[in-house]
Amino acid sequence: MEPQQNKELADLLQACGQGDSAAFARLYDATSPKLFGVAIRMLRREDLAEEVLQECYVSIWTNARTYSAALSAPMTWMTSIVRNRCLDTLRRPRIEVPLARDDESGEDMLAAVPSEELGPHALLERSSDAQALGKCLAKLDGKMRQAIMLAFFEGLSHSELAEHMRQPLGTVKTWIRRGLERLKSCLAENQ
């Protein structure tokens, strides 16, 4: 999201916080396909993703007044609500979601994460934050990057990652920890 869109969404959230339900409808219109995409990707089941989306928008409406544009970008705030709810759903004991297939490495998403190799059009479509992140991810060791991507996009836990990547749990935990540390310093350098 670029500044203009951010401003519009932040204004809509603020209006929602004051009970403006027309603003809420516009916010839903503008953001629900993106957030639904996130939920589908993590939960892999449309029924669960719909349930999560519904819960999240009710929560967004109710909590809109607590949103602060100074603290987070609107899409980041809303996406975090959705990812959180997806993780809660994945934690429920009897929920069965198809596991990531063996041929899915998370690398398919990296292709979609903007990097310098993408053409100018794709670069324009993605936000500058995502571009910076894509560059930093590309610098990580393959396994480290894969572990982070799988955790982020598929919602895999440490033990699920270990199983999926056929690696000891400790190794996977180290990859995640070091990978996150390196991302943080890489992003800080590029700022």
Binding site: P33, G37, S72, R83, A112, P114, A130, L133, L183
Partner: peptide, 25 residues
């Protein structure tokens, strides 16, 4: 950390949810 990592979600393609989701909300 949300500001650092959540932009990854930009890479996910949007999917139009069914109208029934909005109706329920």
């Amino acid at each position: 950390w949300q500001a650092r990592l959540v932009p990854l979600a930009d890479a996910i393609d949007p999917v139009q949810p069914s109208r029934r989701v909005w109706k329920a909300i």
